[in-house]
Computed example of a mutant assay.
Amino acid sequence: MTYLLRVVLPDRPGTLGAVASALGQEGADILSVDVVERHQGVAVDDLVVDLPSARPPDVLITAAESVRDVTVESVRPFFGPLDTARELELVEAVAAAPEEGITRLTDAVPRIFRSAWALVVEASTDDVWGDSGSTRVRRVASSSAAPETEAESLPWLPLRRAAVLDPAAGHTVPPAWTDLDTELAAAPLGRADRALVVGRPGGPGFRPSELARLSHLAGIVATITG
């Protein structure tokens, strides 16, 4: 069974090696390592780990945290492909076919951010018979695993910058979007009334560095697609 393990560890030589050694003693094999962020002497890494089916995932937590000052933020099954240079490949694909850019973005973002789904929504105000009109939400594109439930309204649109969407903090979304304890993040896509939304069931939560990457990628795609 393959798992995605997010670890928070001291950013000092040998620490990641010690974690790898501890995991190896439990029969786990590290398939890939992604640096999520580094700041103030602390690193956050995503490890894709293969574990024999007879072994419970809890042993990954115990093993990693046996290394001094290491904390496991989350562990969850991982079914995605092990891609490298994912963002560059997406940009190249969008540049080759700008008319399909938004669709290619929603298809690729779940792989890039190790998430389950992505969708693009757009808010518009219809002015009817001189009234101020009502705000409607339109789904522009979505990945195959995105919730089918449509949003009737998204009061947090327009969105000025990438952000974590937290219903408890007033970011209203359809309940189906937060099933399975899904963590949500969103970034403006070319303009404030259109947003790329990413869902990660079971966590981990989106960190500031991931929001920055999401915003940067959405901005590049929006520029290419016009």
Rank of each mutant, 00 (worst) to 15 (best):
V75R: 03
A195T: 06
G27I: 11
M1I: 11
V42I: 15
S153M: 01
P174N: 05
L90V: 00
L60Y: 14
R200Q: 04
P155F: 03
P155S: 03
R6F: 06
L165K: 04
S74K: 12
V91C: 11
A43M: 09
V164W: 01
P13L: 09
V75S: 07
L189G: 02
D179G: 05
A116L: 11
R139M: 13
G24I: 12
A93D: 00
A169W: 08
G205E: 04
D34F: 06
T225I: 07
P13V: 07
L51V: 14
V7K: 03
G202M: 04
D50I: 00
A162N: 00
A146G: 03
V109M: 12
P208L: 04
A168T: 10
S215T: 03
A145R: 12
V36E: 14
T84Q: 13
A176I: 06
R38M: 08
R6S: 07
A108N: 10
P188V: 04
P52C: 13
A222S: 12
S132R: 15
A93S: 11
T178V: 13
G14I: 12
T84S: 14
G133C: 04
R104E: 15
V33L: 08
V72H: 03
I112F: 01
D181R: 12
A163N: 13
A168F: 10
D46L: 10
E65W: 15
Q40W: 10
M1D: 12
F113Y: 02
R213M: 04
S124D: 15
L60T: 12
A176D: 08
T125E: 14
A141R: 14
L9A: 13
T2R: 13
R194G: 06
A169D: 15
A195F: 04
E150H: 01
E152P: 00
V140A: 06
L184Q: 02
L4A: 14
S144A: 08
A93I: 01
L196P: 02
G41C: 11
L90G: 01
D131L: 13
R200H: 09
D46K: 03
A96G: 04
D127P: 03
R161G: 04
F206H: 05
P77G: 02
R68E: 15
R38D: 00
V121N: 00
T15E: 10
T106P: 02
V221Y: 03
A54K: 11
T223R: 14
A63Q: 05
V140E: 07
S215I: 05
V94R: 06
G27Q: 08
D50W: 02
R104T: 10
A28W: 15
P56L: 04
P158H: 13
E87A: 09
